[in-house]
Design a protein around this nucleic acid. Structure first.
Lengths: 335, 335
DNA sequence: CTGAAAGCGCTTACAG
DNA sequence: CTGAAAGCGCTTACAG
């Protein structure tokens, strides 16, 4: 048994495909009686509209493409949940692609989604991406894109971010107030806007308290646990090691935590630690890790809503907007 | 600017759409010269084939639907990574749907994916699902489905699971060997095959060691942290509380862990704990939690490969197979 | 080697 | 209230 089509229904009912189509879509022209007959037969034969054909005809698809670095990162999987919830309620389905944090895969993902004629894309760029022409091309082709978290500055499009600068500033400010003297920063790749903003917040907080910014305390690396471990190793090799660390995100904080733990360093006694994101993990370890909450689920919802909103607006009414969500410092025992 | 079509190219090049189509697909009939001209123009105009139209024409789509209970569960997000990797390399893209562990959403998801004419589906059912007709209908419509982890026994289809019985048996056996006397089980919903198999393994291990199976030690619940917390509470209320707990999965183990910790109970001194899945979390807490490794990424890869294999087989050559992957007991400090 | 025609499953302006 | 016709963007058997 194959899928039932409108033509099948038309033949069975001795009606034209047009009438069946209209009956199915509850067109006012069609009589109650016909509608009932059609609906009954549709249910009976398990008819399901071919959305592929509808999309082709209507030149609008019901799928939203999502490109993220890595689904296994709790932050991103939570964002996806938020996206999916909103998309689902609006009758959209999501296609998820991982760039694996590489530029090459991100380009391929973008093309694949464009070729699939998604109604729109929600993207968080890879840490390698500095050339945004693949995304610009997609936009030029008429595909709506909303960026979140890892956004390209140079593209004029809607974006959803958090107040990274404020979040980082608050975290470092908190460390200073707690009396830590030598505060290091495990920073992210400066190609990413978020990373730069968090680093800026770190530096601004130090500066506002007349603290020296020591370049040996700023270690640039990636976004994973191993980067946290490596960063801690490098900091501990310094002749004057720091007494506190602020990390670019929580995976890095967890890596730092484990490395410090493996080295037998007391947290926060020997080294204080503050992360960023509020991954559930940070509340699981002992001491629990102080972190900056990023409302991941809400970021997902907001991003999806921003996209959907544009779908229903005429091109001239569509406007580009950047929504900045609030972060919140969650003070726990690691600082 | 809209998407360039084959007709656009044909007009620009003063060729027929048929020729352009063939040139694009590198058909042997077409001359080298024409191919070059077409390819050049395609690159120049940023032509991307409309996969929607291709799918309609070829009656085969390049998307694979995935239905899981919850993306935020590390086990499932890791499975998805495995699926995505294999799918990606074969030129497929994945559509991800979450059932939220509810029957109603699962039915809707199945219909949505079927309506989107996915080439196949990869599904892990919700804990509520006992009626499988939605899945059977999809199969009857000619959609390939491979089930993984949470599989429906009554459907004859390919499946990828782990040796749940063995895994559970080994875990409980280990607790017995370590000298624990009163071993409890925070069990899952018995509607799920995995849950029953793990419970069976638990009971078999006890029986093989001539231990009594005490019904008050078997608590049936859900699959989340809160279920672990609630389960521990109930166990601690018993007049003769257990000295060890084997949980249906790691989120439940983590919940149990936290509850025990909050209650100030020493692990494993007062209560030993063994989980199931080997979520990264279990290695993060102190004491680290003994668990049964489930190769999540490999489950994803295997599931996707099983589906892809069937795509290239004629219907009569396609066979239903169940692949059982090995689990491994990871002994850590909680037991 | 290239093109005209039909068709995948649907929708909708146009007739009647 | 219903139907015939054209078309969404592509592919492919059939001609030439």
């Amino acid at each position: 048994m194959r899928h039932t089509t409108i033509n099948d229904l038309a033949k069975l009912l001795k009606l034209s495909p047009s009438t069946v189509s209209r009956a199915l879509r509850d067109h006012p022209d069609i009589s109650k009686k016909t509608k009932e007959k059609v609906l009954e037969m549709a249910a009976h034969t398990n008819y399901q509209p071919n959305i592929i054909a509808q999309s082709l005809q209507n030149r609008r698809s019901n799928t939203i493409g999502v490109i993220i670095p890595e689904i296994r990162n709790t932050f991103f999987s939570t964002v996806i949940s938020g996206i999916e919830e909103v998309a689902y309620q609006a009758g959209y389905i999501i296609m998820v692609c991982q760039s694996g944090d590489t530029y090459a895969r991100e380009v391929l993902n973008t093309k694949a989604l464009a070729a699939n004629r998604v109604a729109g894309m929600l993207v968080s760029t890879s840490q390698e991406t500095t050339d945004y022409s693949h995304l610009k091309t997609a936009i030029a082709q008429g595909i709506h894109i909303v960026f979140f978290d890892r956004i390209p500055e140079e593209i004029e499009a809607s974006k959803v971010i958090v107040d990274d600068f404020e979040g980082a500033y608050g975290a470092v400010n908190h460390l200073i107030e707690r009396g830590y003297q030598r505060i290091a920063h495990l920073a992210g790749n400066p190609t990413l806007y978020v990373s730069r903003k968090r680093s800026d917040g770190y530096e601004a907080a130090l500066r506002d308290h007349y603290r020296e910014i020591r370049s040996e305390y700023i270690i640039t690396g990636g976004y994973h646990e191993e980067d946290g471990r490596a960063g801690v190793e490098r900091l501990l090799c310094l002749t004057d090691p720091p007494d506190a660390i602020f990390t670019i995100n929580d995976p890095v904080a967890i890596g730092a935590f484990r490395q410090l733990q493996d080295r037998g360093m007391a947290i926060p006694g020997k080294m204080a630690l503050v992360g960023f994101s509020n991954n559930p993990n940070t509340a699981l370890v002992r001491p629990r890790i102080t972190t900056v909450n990023q409302p991941a689920f809400e970021i997902g919802q907001t991003t999806a809503r921003l996209l959907l909103k544009n779908f229903y607006l005429s091109p001239e009414k569509q406007k580009v907007e950047t929504i900045v969500l609030k972060t919140e410092l969650i003070v726990r025992e690691s600082s």
